[in-house]
Design a protein around this nucleic acid. Structure first.
Length: 389
RNA sequence: GGUGGUUUACCGAAGUGGCCAACCGGGGCAGACUGUAAAUCUGCUGGCUUACGCCUUCCUUGGUUCGAAUCCAAGAGCCACCA
């Protein structure tokens, strides 16, 4: 089937076009055609684990020009459950979002809920974090759930290992991941649903290269690098990305899972990555952190008690256009939900703008300079005093 | 005017002779957060110190005691009832 883009063009679902490659780096700007529309890359995908990007709604997402959001297999299977999801006609209809959705496969919960599961050859025995009920999820179950969810991009069920992790364990996890990837690929899917394979391998270069090579041979619609940003020091994180990308087909979309530090994303783009997701801008907003192009700062801090400047000077998001730091700080400190919502809007706005600028810089063959400038600001800038008085 | 009660750190509130620089809430401050068990979690919240520790504290003053936030006396503030 074919999809229409903003212009009158149309291409088959699953097509990934690299529109331009930066002349001086590995960065590229592209377009991924999905069942629910075109995704322009590099792209940041807000995380909407439980069928909502916490505290905001689709209208907000459209306004900030979000192109695709995440949903989570594990969490949505537990609640509301697939019977209801089927009745409601899938995740798009259920949550009122008509643009692309990528569903995470529940494999991350193998990592994040490590105390509540047992890994077996055919899948993972989970114990629900809600009521303790035991249930099983393997590649087949995960894909079945993602089919019902009807996401545009389904992720392969895999084993995400922690950091640190010894080589023997990592090797075994890669073996498992590859076996499950093959099974996933054989499962029935929703109409137009793409499937991405996930490279694991921890900090071990050969393992990651091996995993990537094997996955590439299976022929996925796109590829993800997983097992990064699981608490490892930044040099290991970047190494994991480089190792993961090295053997992947260059012409397919590259998704770095869970990566959400602005500078780290720019670095990953420089190496040839296209897609990112992360809870940082949303979760940290709820915890009072304001993201700016000059770094992060806690708006909750007392020094902003009477600060009339917007959260970020020069920002045109709904939060900064209308409200002061003093007000946002007040809302957060008295526990008013509006504070959380406004700061979430701001942070996501910053993220999306960052991605759009990256894309422009790539088209202009100026990615290197752009990134250097951003690095200076993000890592050495003073977020708190941005814009002077 | 009389009788009874009460007074603890920013607020509330434990503690009623040594284990008390004083439990616990709230508030305040700081930090953490990378595919969401997260509008969460951690630390600090008398002074000086990185810390060990030292110093000054539980309304005020005086006393009892080896030792007092804790017991006694007087005073002050607040509360209740009686006149």
């Amino acid at each position: 089937m074919e999809v229409q883009s903003g212009s009158q063009e149309s291409k088959p679902v699953g097509t990934f076009e690299i529109l331009h490659e930066d002349r001086h780096t590995g960065a590229r700007a592209g377009r991924l055609w999905t069942q629910h529309g075109v995704i322009e890359t590099p792209v940041f995908m807000p995380v909407g684990t439980q069928a909502t990007v916490k505290s905001i709604e689709p209208r907000d997402l459209h306004e900030m020009q979000a192109q695709v959001v995440l949903g989570n297999t594990y969490h949505l299977l537990l609640r509301p459950g697939m019977e209801i999801m089927e009745t409601c006609g899938g995740l798009h209809k259920f949550m009122g979002w008509n643009k692309p959705i990528l569903t995470d496969r529940g494999g991350f919960q193998v990592f994040s809920l490590s105390g509540l599961r047992k890994i077996k050859p055919v899948g993972v025995e989970f114990q629900s974090h809600i009521d303790g009920a035991r249930f099983f999820m393997g590649p087949k179950e995960s894909m079945a759930v993602q089919r019902i969810l009807g996401s545009d991009i389904a992720m392969c069920f895999d084993e995400c290992i922690p950091y640190p992790c010894d080589e023997a364990y990592a090797t075994n996890a890669v073996r498992q991941t590859l076996k499950w990837a093959k099974t996933c690929l054989e499962q029935p899917r929703a109409e137009g649903q793409l499937v991405f394979g996930i490279v694991q391998g921890g900090e071990f270069t050969e393992l990651r290269e091996y995993c990537a090579t094997e996955l590439a041979a299976m022929g996925f619609d796109g590829y993800a690098v997983g097992g990064v940003s699981v608490g490892e020091p930044e040099p290991f994180l970047l190494k994991g990305i480089r190792d993961g990308l090295r053997k992947l087909p260059w012409e397919k979309p590259h998704y770095i899972m869970g990566l959400g530090d602005l500078w780290q994303m720019s670095e990953a783009v420089r190496l040839g990555s296209d897609m990112f997701d992360c809870v940082i801008p949303t979760r940290n907003a709820r915890n009072g952190a304001a993201f700016t192009r000059d770094g992060v700062y806690p708006v909750k801090a007392g020094e902003f008690k009477a600060d009339l400047r917007p959260v970020e000077v020069g920002c045109d998001c709904p939060c900064c256009s209308n409200f002061s730091r003093a007000y946002i700080r007040h809302l957060l400190n008295v526990g008013e939900i509006l504070g959380v919502r406004l700061l979430t809007l701001h942070n996501l706005h910053v993220y999306h703008k960052f991605m759009r600028e990256m894309r422009e810089a790539i088209f202009a063959d100026g990615f290197k300079d752009w990134q250097e400038e951003q690095t200076r600001r993000l890592r050495c800038g003073d977020a708190r005093t941005r814009g002077g008085k």
